[in-house]
Design a protein around this nucleic acid. Sequence first.
DNA 1: GTGAAAGCGCTAACAG
DNA 2: CTGTTAGCGCTTTCAC
Lengths: 349, 349
Amino acid sequence: MKNDDARRNPPPTLEDVARRAGVSTATVSRCLNGTGTVRDETRERVESAVAELGYTPHFGARALASNRTGTIGIVIPTMENAIFAHGLQAMEETLSKQDVTLLVATSGYSPEREMEKIRALVARGVDGLALIGFGRQPEVYDFLASRAVRFVVLWSYRADSEWPCIGFDNRRAAMDMADRVMAEGHRKIAMIAGMTVGNDRATARVAGVRAAMAKQGLDLAPEQLIECQYSLAKGEAAVSRLLSVPKPPTAVICGNDVLAVGALRGARLAGMSVPQDLSIVGFDDIELASAVDPALTTVHVPHRRMGRAAARFLLSPSDETGEAGNFCFETEIVMRSSLGVANSDLRRG
Amino acid sequence: MKNDDARRNPPPTLEDVARRAGVSTATVSRCLNGTGTVRDETRERVESAVAELGYTPHFGARALASNRTGTIGIVIPTMENAIFAHGLQAMEETLSKQDVTLLVATSGYSPEREMEKIRALVARGVDGLALIGFGRQPEVYDFLASRAVRFVVLWSYRADSEWPCIGFDNRRAAMDMADRVMAEGHRKIAMIAGMTVGNDRATARVAGVRAAMAKQGLDLAPEQLIECQYSLAKGEAAVSRLLSVPKPPTAVICGNDVLAVGALRGARLAGMSVPQDLSIVGFDDIELASAVDPALTTVHVPHRRMGRAAARFLLSPSDETGEAGNFCFETEIVMRSSLGVANSDLRRG
DNA sequence: GTGAAAGCGCTAACAG
DNA sequence: CTGTTAGCGCTTTCAC
């Protein structure tokens, strides 16, 4: 049996390689890690010994001895929609060029689970950590500090942040979007937001919409703001609630594209056509946004560039950090067809 | 500075805990791992020492000493669409109940990169590995055997498989779908498939469609079969190619939902309405499928159940494996609106 | 340029 | 029920 084979022949160790190459383990280690200098001829002997034996270093042993793991961790809220997929992909690509592995954990938008995952990743000796947004208990940051874990906050940006962050201005982006919606003549505007508690991005997006509306003397009445989890079904349910009142909104601003696509479907089911009867806009510009009909007007977020920047930051030697780890990307509104001019009938209504 | 703090106070070790609790390291280890028996009073002392110190075990050390890591790895083709997301999520949930971490790596549908990732995961000492589909070089399986790595193939099923697999019958599912399409009167049928080379699932889906058509005396002409990568854009491009011939198909069977949604958009751009002028069906039943308009008729695949089964299999003690790791899930066709009866005008055409 | 040897933090026999 | 102790495989001074 193959299994027994393997049990009898445990994987080769550094020592096996050293013996075969006729050198010491220190030399093999030096070859493998590019530390110190080794004569060419010696290096070749070592390399062929490695190849012949099919040697792979033992990760745990290496981690124990060197106190590094070649691993970066990230905790994202969810993998179930594509919001973070491109960012992750870009991050992973950049990291793997330097032979570092990205460990992805998900929290399901739960602070407790996020903390668990952070602990798990730190316990695994990640050399760096990426977290989404700022909204978390101070204990989390204390823990990270006490363990001296390098980390960066992604997807959010605060100029005065105490911690490095690479993101964008969620509030501003939402404000711009609301301005754009109002520029189309909309006055009765509703919002379907993500759960704002503990989620600074969702919170900022609501605040942005509020601020923009305030500038025009409008406000977001409580019944015009629905908070729900980011899912198609919730978006669909939310919009039907918004439409079931005497004077329904002519435009709905959604906290992300998933909600917006759900809303699109809800509107369709309610017999409204978008954007003639109702405008719907999203946020994030995931692929889904341009796949649906009508295609979604949304806020384009530079996922890949953020992912790459995050990787580069976490890869950079910690002693040359400086202010480097603080970057605000620009977002822009992508006009597609789901936003139209306000229908005056309804506006009057 | 916090960083210096941490450098001066290195993380507590098992020994620190032992000292503080007034016991030996062995006892602390026993408490932490639930191995052996410990008096309640002792356990409590240990537990409070752990809490006070904020102790977290060192992963590498543990891996080195015990030769286990509490880690299961999986290599999936991509995270950029939701095909594997629910399966992963379910797997992760099941594993984390047993304090096992899931390490996710992506291959981008490249065999070389898949092998790299497998090596990386094995080097990290994963206790088990999940792979998608069977299509890979024999060397990969040899490597796994030589390292005695427990693994399971997912998303595919072969009754006579040499290796444990938990999946479904891709060929059969595609066949059923083709039958269903033909039952609506379609005779001119085209297919937009994923790249079949090295991808047994894509291959089986094409084979299934072929077989079903053959039963009715039809065949899939070369120009009626387009292979492309799984992306919205490719699906869109493919359908416009299919529609640009004298006698275009009345139905297009797609290798997955992403392609189908792309095709939907392509058809729309070509001025065709679905399903009146053209029927389009997908495969996988990801959320996207029911979010678009018209909603996609597709093959429902029990992603979550597969993920859970995979986790359970990999979690089970290897000595009681037996035939347990071989399971074929049923799929079913979800009728939505993108499949309609064949338009006789076009059929004649 | 290379080797010897001391750990890294933890687990698992083995004693007691 | 608990303590002692010998490694696990690798990196990293420190000599030579």
